[in-house]
Simulated assay, not measured.
Amino acid sequence: MKKNWLWPVMAAGLIVSACGAETVQQDGEESQEAAETTEQTETAVDSAAMELEVPFDGSMDHVHGMGYIEENGGLYFASHHGLKIHRDGAWTEIADQFHDFMGFNATAEGFVTSGHPDMQSDMENPLGIKRSADGGANFDDLGFEGETDFHEMAVGYNSGNLFVFAPQPNSEMETGFYRSDDAGESWQPAAADGIAGTVTYLAMHPDDSEMIAAVSNEGIFLSEDGGESFSTITEGEFGTAAFFSEDALFYATYDGEAKLVKRALSGEQQDIALPEMTEDGVIYIAQHPANTEQLAIYTAQGHAWLTQDAGSDWTKILDAGQVQ
Results as ranks from 00 to 15, higher is better:
Met1Ile: 12
Lys3Trp: 11
Asn4Ala: 10
Trp5Ser: 05
Trp5Val: 08
Trp7Gly: 03
Ala11Ser: 10
Gly13Ala: 07
Gly13Val: 03
Ile15Val: 14
Val16Lys: 13
Gly20Ser: 13
Glu22Thr: 11
Val24Tyr: 02
Gln26Ser: 14
Glu29Arg: 13
Gln32Thr: 14
Glu36Asn: 14
Thr37Ser: 13
Thr38Val: 14
Val45Pro: 01
Ser47His: 06
Ala48Arg: 12
Val54Gln: 13
His64Trp: 03
Glu70Ile: 02
Gly73Pro: 05
Gly73Ile: 06
Gly74Asp: 08
Tyr76Gln: 01
Tyr76Lys: 01
Phe77Cys: 01
Phe77Gln: 02
Ala78Thr: 02
Ile85Asp: 01
Thr92Tyr: 06
Glu93Lys: 13
Ala95Lys: 10
Phe98Ile: 06
Phe111Lys: 03
Gly115Asn: 07
Asp122Ala: 14
Glu124Gln: 15
Glu124Ile: 05
Glu124Ala: 15
Pro126Met: 11
Gly128Ile: 10
Lys130Met: 15
Ser132Arg: 01
Ala137Val: 12
Thr148Ile: 06
Ala154Pro: 07
Val155Pro: 08
Asn161Pro: 09
Phe163Trp: 11
Gln168Ala: 13
Glu172Thr: 08
Gly176Phe: 04
Asp181Glu: 14
Gly184Asp: 09
Ala192Thr: 01
Thr198Arg: 12
Thr200Arg: 10
Leu202Asn: 00
Met211Trp: 14
Ala214Thr: 07
Ser216Arg: 07
Ser216Met: 12
Gly219Ser: 06
Ile220Tyr: 09
Leu222Asn: 05
Glu224Gln: 14
Asp225Ala: 02
Gly226Tyr: 05
Glu228Tyr: 00
Ile233Asp: 01
Phe244His: 09
Ser245Thr: 15
Glu246Thr: 13
Ala248Glu: 06
Ala248Thr: 09
Leu249Met: 11
Phe250Met: 09
Thr253Cys: 08
Gly256His: 06
Glu257Val: 12
Glu257Trp: 04
Pro275Trp: 10
Met277Pro: 03
Met277Cys: 06
Pro289Ile: 03
Asn291Thr: 05
Asn291Tyr: 08
Glu293Cys: 04
Tyr298Ser: 03
Tyr298Ala: 04
Gln301Asp: 11
Gln301Asn: 13
His303Tyr: 10
Ala310Ser: 13
Gly321Met: 01
Gly321Ile: 08
